[in-house]
Simulated assay, not measured.
Amino acid sequence: MQRPDPFNAQCPTRQVLDRIGDKWAVLILIMLDRETLRFNALRRRIENISQKMLSQTLKSLERDGLVRREVFATVPVTVEYSLTELGRTLAKTVEALTLWAESHIEAVQEAQRRYDRGGHEMN
Rank of each mutant, 00 (worst) to 15 (best):
E70C: 11
L58P: 04
G87W: 00
L54K: 03
K92V: 10
V94E: 08
A111I: 00
L97K: 12
S103T: 13
T84I: 01
Q112D: 02
Q56E: 13
Q112C: 01
V75F: 10
K59G: 07
E106K: 10
L66Y: 07
L97D: 13
M53D: 13
R88D: 06
A111D: 01
A107I: 00
R68V: 05
V79Q: 08
K59F: 03
R69L: 03
V71Q: 13
R68K: 12
E62C: 06
T84N: 04
K52Q: 12
K59D: 11
E95W: 04
F72Q: 14
R63F: 08
V67A: 03
F72S: 13
Q112Y: 00
E80I: 11
T78K: 15
K59S: 13
Q112G: 02
R88Q: 11
S55H: 10
E62T: 06
I105P: 08
Q51I: 06
L99N: 13
T84D: 04
L58A: 01
P76Q: 05
E85K: 11
R68N: 12
E110A: 03
H104T: 09
E102A: 11
A101M: 10
T57A: 04
V79T: 13
N48F: 09
A101N: 13
E70A: 12
W100F: 14
Q51V: 09
E47C: 04
Q56F: 09
T74Q: 15
R113N: 07
T78D: 14
D64V: 01
R63S: 14
L90Y: 11
E85G: 15
R69T: 08
N48I: 03
I105W: 09
R88Y: 02
T84S: 10
I46F: 00
H104N: 14
E85N: 12
T98I: 10
L97Y: 14
L83F: 00
V94Y: 06
R114L: 01
A73R: 14
S50P: 07
R88N: 07
R88H: 08
P76K: 05
D116Q: 10
R114M: 00
A96Q: 15
Y81F: 07
E110F: 00
F72T: 11
R114P: 03
T74H: 10
A101I: 04
A73E: 15
T57Y: 01
V75M: 11
A107Q: 05
K52M: 07
I49M: 06
A96E: 14
R69H: 07
D116E: 12
T78C: 09
M53H: 10
V77W: 04
F72G: 09
R113Q: 08
A91H: 03
T89G: 14
V79E: 07
L90W: 11
R114N: 06
Q112T: 00
A111H: 00
L90H: 09
E85C: 07
S55W: 01
T93K: 15
I105F: 08
S103E: 15
I46C: 02
E47I: 03
T89Q: 15
V79R: 09
Q112P: 02
A91R: 01
D116N: 09
A91Q: 03
I49F: 02
G87F: 00
A107H: 05
W100K: 12
S55R: 10
T98N: 14
S103K: 15
A101S: 14
V75N: 13
E62I: 01
E85F: 05
L54Q: 01
